[in-house]
């Protein structure tokens, strides 16, 4: 049953992948003009050098020829090489994808851990000062632009703290340039960017939990639970929250695609060597192969994320079972 369902979803996803990658290519190709990827205004380059490079990259051919060549490669597991630096696209992705997952995964975790209590408190104390304060904080966290928050945090926790001789946090990169890479070092580098990124999740999810919780707490089975004589805490957290979290799971599942792309602004501000930053920079430079490779993976992740959310929903809500 389940295997069939997954298989069907997978086949449908292939169509999506093809469509998305084709559209991506068309968009890049139509806007590129005559620009040759990777060419800067370097006085040492002659017109014939630039022309030769364009031909080598296959940019003299119509885009559909390029696309078919690329598909052929992908089918054989070859995602080609970057048009700008010649490294394999796979090496770029494999190098950076873990960094992105580390960042967004952590941000999502922080988001969940904070959103649930904030949302529950907001629901339990709705209308109170505490509720209003939390609402303002949530909305602010959502409204404040990530790059601004990032820069402010860097200013406070990196530069200012260091100037006063206090322990400070690093402002870019995933680990220290020298002797870096151990767990503590990575965590230190993760704190600021993950915090900025988690604000977005925290704000949306805490609002959501709050309203979901309010709705759940007005349900009859909550009244039944109280009539059975259990503590209010048990009513709220066992009977109530368990139901309120179900729709949140779907929300989180829908965020899974954001695991790849959601951290883009934060990655750029903090120089985080992730895949979002890679795609962003390379798209602006018309590095077809890299952008297509990243798009391919991102699409696969979106599809996987949606599937996972649906399956999780089925696990958590017994009223939904798949055939």
């Amino acid at each position: 049953m389940l295997a069939k369902y997954v298989a069907r979803r997978f086949l449908a996803s292939l169509v999506v992948v093809l469509g998305v990658t084709l559209i991506t290519l068309v968009l890049m190709d139509r806007t590129r003009g005559t620009y040759v990827p990777g060419i800067d205004l370097n006085p040492a380059l002659r017109p014939e050098d630039i022309a030769r490079l364009r031909a080598d990259l296959g940019l003299d051919r119509p885009f559909y020829i390029w696309y078919l060549t690329w598909i052929w490669g992908v089918v054989h597991g070859d995602f080609g090489r970057s048009m700008i630096d010649g490294s394999t696209v796979m090496s770029h992705i494999l190098d950076r994808l873990p960094n992105t997952l580390e960042l967004t995964g952590t941000a999502i975790l922080i988001g969940i851990v904070i959103a649930i209590p904030v949302g529950v408190i907001g629901a339990l104390r709705h209308g109170s000062k505490a509720d209003h304060t939390l609402t303002v904080v949530s909305v602010a966290g959502f409204a404040v632009p990530q790059f601004w928050m990032g820069l402010i945090l860097i200013l406070i926790f990196s530069v200012t703290l260091e100037q006063h001789g206090l322990p400070w946090l690093p402002s870019s990169g995933a680990y220290s340039a020298v002797n870096g890479g151990d767990f503590i070092d990575r965590v230190e580098h993760l704190i600021l960017p993950a915090t900025v990124l988690s604000f977005f999740y925290m704000s949306t999810w805490s609002r959501f939990i709050r309203s979901s919780m309010l709705e759940v707490l007005s349900q009859d089975y909550i009244r039944t639970a109280r009539a059975k004589g259990m503590s209010e805490r048990r009513v709220v957290y066992l009977h109530g929250l368990r139901n309120a979290l179900i729709p949140l799971v779907t929300l989180i599942g829908l965020e899974l695609p954001g695991l790849v792309s959601g951290g883009l602004v934060v990655e750029v501000v903090f120089g985080w060597p992730g895949i979002g930053k890679l795609a962003f920079e390379r798209a602006l430079q018309y590095d077809y192969t890299t952008v297509m490779g990243v798009t391919f993976f991102a699409t696969m992740l979106v599809i996987a994320g949606n599937l996972l959310a649906d399956l999780l929903y089925g696990v958590l809500d017994p009223r939904i079972r798949y055939s």
Partner: peptide
């Protein structure tokens, strides 16, 4: 509650916890 005095309600579908 639930031990010496028990109460049951009108709509059993919504009165039982679905999960």
């Amino acid at each position: 509650r639930g031990r010496e005095i028990a109460m049951i309600f009108q709509d059993p579908m919504t009165s039982l916890n679905p999960v």
